[in-house]
């Protein structure tokens, strides 16, 4: 398989139809393998770095679940001190739990010190490595093993943390969201990100076939629908200013996104389901307003 030019895989153990390998592969291709990869504990780490079965063709380090931001900062500092800055970019791949929950302290520290690091959060909206427990980035209404659907509760209550807002508030030079359904957009954003010196944050929506309860063949479709409904807006901030968004030509109702996923299926019959669907639609509407997603032309 040496004839396929890939810095990641094949031979990794991700589930058939998994979303994040698409983002990892595209990022490393875009950086032409000039990357020091830091990976937090999680799906990606488990499927790619078992001892003796390393599928990374770039320098790679996994330390802990919650310290990827700090480890990346340390690599950046070391490269500076040793005069090796021109060797490559420091890139983090971390899941949503590692980013928004347990590791948000070290992430914030890395942002605050403005290390020259591209931090990519692959967001599959729950702790999928351990079997779908809710994280701070699980959307409302999603059924997870720690927010199961019951007679009383319709899955997760509360909202999905706004990581883009949190990143922008740190005043770092580049913040953007992307999706595995839009690889060209992702490629461009990676390229744009590394033009900035300092901390860059890229939030990539990446469906999980088992946790979301979708067929592998729907991975790209589901990710696209998240964008097309306005639930997952693709936005781009440079030096704190919103500079670009992906406009939605004909916005779809959130039901279209929800109905094809097992984690939301109960919303269509649970007594509180309608309320949650309304809430999700309202979130999508807010996104459209906030980021100006509607294509007026």
């Amino acid at each position: 398989m040496n004839d396929i030019r890939s810095y990641f895989g094949p031979g990794h153990g991700a589930c058939p139809g998994c979303g994040f390998p698409i983002a990892v592969k595209i990022t490393l291709e875009t950086l032409e393998g000039k990357a020091f990869v830091v990976n937090s504990t999680g799906c990606l780490e488990i499927v790619s770095s078992m001892y003796g079965r390393n599928v990374w063709a770039v320098p790679y380090i996994h330390s802990l679940f919650e310290n990827a931001g700090a480890v990346a900062g340390g690599i950046d500092a070391a490269l500076k001190a040793l005069g090796r800055k021109n060797e490559g970019h420091v890139v983090v791949f971390a899941g949503d739990g590692a980013t928004a929950d347990i590791g948000i302290g070290t992430l914030s520290g890395m942002f605050d010190r403005n290390h020259d690091v591209l931090y990519i959060c692959y967001d599959n909206e729950a702790y999928q490595n351990t079997g779908n427990q809710q994280s701070g980035l699980t959307p409302p209404g999603a059924s997870t093993t720690t927010t199961p659907v019951g007679d009383l509760l319709p899955g997760k209550m509360g909202r999905k943390k706004d990581m883009i807002g949190i990143a922008v508030a740190h005043g770092i030079p580049y913040v953007a969201s992307a999706s595995i359904a839009f690889p060209n957009d992702l490629r461009r954003k990676v390229k744009r990100a590394i033009e900035f010196e300092g901390a860059k944050y890229l939030h990539v929506h990446a469906p999980c076939v088992t946790g979301w309860g979708i067929d592998g063949k729907l991975t790209v479709e589901v990710a696209r629908l998240a964008v097309e409904t306005g639930l997952y807006p693709l936005v781009e901030y440079e030096n704190g200013r919103l500079v670009r968004v992906m406009k939605l030509k004909k916005r779809k109702p959130v039901e279209e996104y929800l109905k094809i996923q097992r984690r939301f299926r109960h919303l269509f019959k649970h007594p509180l389901g309608e309320k949650i669907i309304k809430e999700l639609q309202q979130i999508a509407d807010e996104n459209v307003k906030r980021y100006g997603l509607e294509d007026e032309g």
Partner: peptide
């Protein structure tokens, strides 16, 4: 660093480099 946990992680990353 932002905490001792962060400090130890920074030196870990640097040492690995």
């Amino acid at each position: 660093a932002e905490s001792e946990f962060g400090a130890a992680s920074v030196v870990l990353g640097a040492s690995a480099t």
